[in-house]
Design a protein around this nucleic acid. Structure first.
Length: 420
DNA sequence: TCTGGGGTCCTAGGACCC
DNA sequence: TCTGGGGTCCTAGGACCC
């Protein structure tokens, strides 16, 4: 038996915890560079602001309704997320952190008759201890728990908690769920399902598996099974080992200058290296890509270079050098670049490093440097030390911009909220 | 003028092996 | 004219998730 705990309008709710003046008002949170809307309060949804819409396309609505606008503040959201998880851990040790605002709980061992009450208690405790409102769906499979959660969110009388354990009750509710609202069914699959007359979750649960398998593969079969109450996706408590690590950014204004691109790519390679070390991993493949604006009419260019490293590494200097070498091969003069990124692939645990006969001493020395580097940045804050290749902060043209970012209330001593 | 970032899984097809 | 059978590995692309 699963419960899916999902934070309501999570980023907006985080902002509201620290600025109650925006409770009851329409609020949106924007993506990097304040480009798109990525979170909306219920009021913002009601006035028709769509998920993912570029800010400039909805500027009129925002102005007309006095919508409160925030740049994204991941330091804040990440910290609030771990607080929510801490509260959940008071209720069961069997937790799968599914995303920044969602967690599955395994409630199999609990008294099945009082699950709804237990859910209500979880919900009110999270609210009281963190300030974040959540909805909870309870059901025998993850896919059904997702659906229960969705219904809990939209129906007032559920009080934010919905239990779909009862099979008869479940049938009527499944009939009310459109196929595109099922976990695992996106744009393409819902178009296909509609074309063969399957409009809702109840119909899909009764569809012939062999036929669905031809179009949707094994994923489609699993969705049907899960809708029927047969569990195909168990709780995953320990996250599987990462397969790739990406750092990429769009530039607010296009870059034309090779020197600027060099800095940006060095920065992304540094971040990749830091993430690798944090996960105690090393990469044997480094991928560098860059692209022009995919929208609009100016001339387009996209290229990507894959570099196989002779020796697995998480060393910042090495990765920057490889990234620059990759950039050499794909950079073409005359384009206005809008985005670049660095990806580390074929990751291995640093403990199982493959040595070479001669590289040993240099290696050990470099990892000591990296350890010191990370220690300094942990203690004195990110970027306290960094590589000169990332440029001088005074003129990093490629830096992501955040015009309306709230303070890091919970993660920076200098930005604590003040109460008067 | 202005359009995010970071992932995973699955499948088909090609290359290659004995 | 007629040309086996059974596999694995790798990659690209599609689809999906938050």
């Amino acid at each position: 038996m699963f419960a899916l705990v999902d934070c309501n309008n999570f980023y907006v709710s985080c902002e509201r915890v620290f600025d109650p003046r925006i409770i009851g008002r329409p609020v949106v949170v924007l993506s990097n560079n304040d480009g798109c809307v990525i979170a909306r309060s219920n009021e913002a949804k009601t006035i028709g602001i769509r998920m993912g819409v570029p800010l400039f396309k909805t500027a009129d609505v925002i102005k007309a309704h006095g919508v409160a606008v925030y740049s994204s503040n991941y330091a804040l959201y990440g910290d609030m997320s771990s607080r929510v998880i801490e509260v959940l851990a008071h209720f069961t040790p069997d937790i799968e952190i599914y995303s920044i605002d969602e967690a599955f709980l395994d409630l199999s061992g609990f008294n099945q008759c009082s699950l709804t009450d237990y859910g209500r208690s979880i919900r009110s405790t999270v609210r009281r201890w963190t300030g974040i409102p959540v909805s909870i769906g309870i059901a025998p499979t993850k896919t059904l728990a997702k659906i229960a959660n969705r219904i809990a969110k939209r129906s007032r009388e559920s009080g934010g908690v919905l239990n779909l354990t009862n099979p008869t009750h479940r049938k009527t509710e499944l009939a009310s769920i459109a196929v595109n609202d099922i976990w695992g069914v996106g744009r393409s699959y819902s178009r296909f399902l509609r074309s063969i007359g399957i409009e809702n979750a109840l119909q899909l649960s009764n569809a012939p598996e062999s036929f669905i398998k031809k179009k949707m593969g094994i994923t489609g079969v699993r969705i049907i099974q899960e809708l029927k109450g047969v569990c195909c996706y168990p709780l995953e408590q320990s996250p599987p080992q990462k397969k790739e690590i990406t750092v990429s950014r769009s530039f607010k204004h296009p870059l034309t200058n090779r020197a600027d691109l060099n800095e940006a790519v060095a920065e992304y390679a540094s971040r990749v290296a830091e993430k690798l070390r944090a996960a105690q991993l090393e990469a044997t493949i480094l991928v560098i890509f860059l692209m022009t604006n995919p929208y609009g009419r100016e001339s387009r260019y996209f290229n990507i270079k894959t570099i196989r490293l002779a020796l697995a590494t998480s060393n910042t200097a090495e990765l920057i050098a490889h990234a620059h070498r990759g950039l050499d091969e794909i950079y073409r003069q005359g384009y206005r670049y809008k985005k670049a990124g660095v990806i580390a692939r074929d990751l291995f645990s640093e403990r199982s490093r493959q040595m070479t006969l001669f590289a040993r001493n240099r290696r050990e020395q470099s990892s000591e440097i990296m350890e010191a580097f990370d220690r300094i940045n942990r203690q004195f804050g990110r970027n306290s030390v960094r590589y000169a290749a990332t440029g001088s902060t005074a003129d990093q043209k490629w830096k992501t911009s955040f015009q309306w970012r709230s303070p890091s209330y919970t993660t920076d001593w200098n930005q604590l909220p003040e109460v008067s």
